[in-house]
Amino acid sequence: MTEETLLSIENLKVHFPLKTRGFSAPKSFVHAVDGIDLKIAKGKTFGIVGESGSGKTTTALAVMRLVPITSGAITLGDQRLDRLEGEELRRARRHMQIIFQDPYSSLNPRVRAGAIVREPMDLMDVGEKSEREDLVAELFRQVGLRPEQQALFPHQFSGGQRQRIGVARALASQPDLVVCDEPVSALDVAIQAQIINLLRKLQAELGLTYLFISHDLGVVQYICDDIAVMYLGKIVEMGDRISLFKEPLHPYTWALLSAVPSADPALRDRADRIRLQGDPPSPIDPPPGCGFASRCPFSQALCTMEAPQLRTIRTGHSVACHFVSDDGVPPQRKI
């Protein structure tokens, strides 16, 4: 691949200390993100999927420098984000912006929509002061809101319109990378489609790069070019959208795909669908070995002793499972 890499994450760990009583140092840690590597090409959409608590949001917040990074490197363009502090960090922020899940709580209810969108421009010195009014008007147009709606307060908008304001605000600083953390999960399906179409249109027009987090596999398959599947703080499989969904390799990915209720009878009636038992284990001081071993129908003794490493099976498709063969035969096909 000759694509230019915009964001690269190397061996990122984010461990949260558990609060302890007394003065002793914390002994236990939540391994929210436990050593992940990924690269996002400029102008592409990179998706992260996975169970609740698998570390998707924490990864996003680490990229945004909104949680303390335990170790690892995050590089945006040619800048090591993880090393920036103070004024340098503040200046770097205009290159990365985030859209949150909840359009209701992420907008200040007492500020008019126009001012909400303008604020990042003033904070980060985007363009000339005299131009900003026009820039805001242009953003409103781009996200499909009318100019006079700048004067309204957030509660005067519908959920979908509020999310449009969130998108406009994220674009105000003319970022290279836009992190979208479940940007459509709180919206009704019809409104979801409007926002997804909007995000794709803006990407085509402005050359944006997205880090897109969602638990909805249909949405991820549609919007993302490359996808990482996370489980218990680790990436268990990563691939381009065609290869990953056509030939999923990791048993967890397979279980996830099997679990999605489907309107397509061909998918629904597949005999090799698997069902997981139980819930994911706790990320507090996780055991050695494969994080999925406790729920994996194919797990063997080796799985609980040794953590499988992410290996490349074919171009653009890698997996972390002991029992996927080097030529890409997953355990679920062998039985």
Partner: peptide, 27 residues
């Protein structure tokens, strides 16, 4: 029709091409 078309349904064999989702305008 809109309700079915506006959702990107998971497919076991996704195509390269992605057509825009059906838009039910308004609220």
């Amino acid at each position: 029709t809109g309700l079915i078309g506006c959702v990107p349904h998971l497919s076991a064999d996704p195509s390269e091409e992605r057509v825009p989702l059906t838009d039910i305008p308004g609220v």
